Simulated scan of single mutants.
Amino acid sequence: MSFNGKVEIGKWKYLAEANLIYIDRLTDKIFLKQSFFDDSVMILKIDGTNDDLFILANENIIPDLDVPKYLSSFIINIGILERTTFFNMPLINGDILNINRDELNYSKVGMSVLLNNNSAPDGEYFAQGDIVDKLLVYHITDSKIKDLFWLFTYKTSKGTFKIYQKNEYSFSLGDKVLLNNIPAPNGKHKLEFMMHINVTNGVISSHSIF
């Protein structure tokens, strides 16, 4: 890491299972999540925030490293980053959920949607996540995203647990739990090695490693 000619040696690691970059800057440690990229620019943001951005530029394409100027030209001339544009999300059943996004984010509560370019009936829509046992679940009401969850599947000796997580990277209190596609019974359940949850009335009431 170089700043004003002073160099320090830190560490970084790409966490594929979470789609995050971990950086040890010696004075602190941060997780960065990809917000936007093309051949010339990559924009990362600190996980869990909206404003802390890290911008990396390809000097071969943007010699003066004037990223705002480049993006402004990119928007005007190409139109890919217009503030209102549809993102086509493939669903696991072969349909396409057309999401009318108002920014780079295409997964946000309140955005309007179409299904195969027609009106989207109320219901749940499932898209494949970045790992096999993870789905992105859209709850659609009145042609808008009402809720958004990450559905994780855990196969255990009791059967198959499904957890509707509000947080993409870990389950939390209040997340809905199904066992073999019905609400999980009250009590303590082991999901994986050193991963246990307590369920009350079909939702996680606590969790522990033992």
Rank of each mutant, 00 (worst) to 15 (best):
D133M: 07
I30L: 07
Y169F: 11
D175Y: 02
K162W: 01
I163V: 09
F37I: 06
N167H: 15
E168V: 09
L179M: 05
G48S: 05
D102G: 13
L15Y: 12
I99T: 01
P63L: 01
K162Q: 09
T153I: 10
F86T: 11
P90Y: 05
K188S: 13
A57M: 02
V132W: 10
E103A: 13
L56C: 09
G5D: 05
V41F: 02
D66M: 06
L20Q: 13
P63T: 08
D102P: 04
R101M: 01
V109E: 07
L191C: 04
I182M: 11
Y125L: 04
G48K: 01
Y106I: 14
I131Q: 10
L148C: 00
E82M: 14
N180Y: 02
L104N: 13
V109P: 00
S72T: 14
D102M: 10
P68C: 04
D147I: 04
A18R: 14
N186L: 02
K29A: 08
N4I: 12
E8F: 12
T27P: 05
I9A: 15
K6T: 15
F54Q: 13
N93Y: 05
F193Y: 13
S143P: 01
F161A: 01
D147Q: 11
N180K: 08
S112L: 07
G10P: 02
I96A: 03
K29H: 10
T153Q: 12
D147H: 08
L173V: 06
F152A: 02
W12S: 12
G79A: 07
V41K: 03
Q34N: 13
V137K: 08
W12T: 11
K162P: 00
E8A: 14
L135T: 04
D64Q: 06
I23K: 00
A184D: 01
K6P: 03
D130R: 11
L71R: 04
Y22R: 06
S72V: 12
N181V: 02
I197M: 07
K69M: 09
I140H: 03
F37A: 10
I30C: 05
D142K: 15
L26G: 05
K45M: 12
T141F: 14
I23L: 06
N186K: 05
D51M: 11
D51H: 09
F87I: 09
F37M: 14
K166D: 15
F149A: 02
K69R: 11
H207M: 05
N167I: 05
V132H: 12
Y14Q: 03
K146Y: 12
D175E: 00
Q165L: 03
N181E: 06
I62F: 04
D147M: 06
L114I: 06
L44H: 02
M195V: 03
N116I: 02
N58W: 04
K190E: 06
Y154C: 07
